[in-house]
Amino acid sequence: MSHRTFVWICLLPLVVVTIAFFLLPIAQLVVVGATGPRGLSAYLAILTEPRYRATMINTVVLAAATTIATLVIATIAGLFLQRHRFPGRAVLIAMLTFPLAFPGVVVGFLIILLAGRQGLIGAISNAVSGEKIVFAYSIFGLFLGYLYFSIPRVILTIMAAVQKLDVGLEEAARSLGASPWAVQRDVVLPALGPAFVASGAIAFATAMGAFGTAFTLATNIDVLPMLIYTEFTLAANFSISAALSIGLGVIAWAILALARSFSGGAVAAAG
């Protein structure tokens, strides 16, 4: 057997599995999306139908807010953790990164424990002011949930980027007279740019497509994944849900592809 043949044999199972359970189904999804009562215009419904459009805008705004908040939080914490050595640092890092692969459902439940009807924040506010603050089931609860699973991932990326940063760059800027703030502004933050783009894109795409958290919080928060789910299971509106999923997939993919062309690294969503 030649080496060429062997390489092809190695590749064959992957090609078969991917075609059968990914490419074919996605093609089918595209076809179903185009063959409903609306025909091809189903793909435009995400923009033309006011209800869908509002949901779409909602989802994008929420994902963008999550991304920005996560980046700010993770940059402050990541820079701090990578730049200082103090007792308990390893524990702190572990605490900030262990929720890395928690599924969305669990995150939703954790948000309920924090800010739900029997939640900690409600209990504290009740004790302090006699008023029970409950926001887990609102869009702010969903925002918190998305923050919860974005923070660990982004902190890890930023810490890795900070570690790779040449300390000489900062020392050089200081030797040229730059104040600590100027060093951050002119040297550190620009150098972290690719990491911001990469991890921000992941946070954004993940928040766009996250379903488990919204599902657990289970109120009528209008986000795209929930809309697709209800159209499919409750309204049995296959073509619209197919078209919306394609739209969602294209947006998420485009954001990541764009980020990748910017930062040159491997960028992927998860969860």
Binding site: L23, L29, A205, G209, F211, Y229, S245, G249, W253, A268
Partner: peptide
């Protein structure tokens, strides 16, 4: 190209992939 295609499921939300599988199989 193959690597790119098999990496797509990281970008496309699970919900969409699940729908695709349901509609096909």
């Amino acid at each position: 190209v193959i690597e790119e295609i098999i990496t797509l499921p990281l970008a496309i939300p699970g919900l969409a992939i699940a729908l695709a599988l349901l509609l096909t199989y």
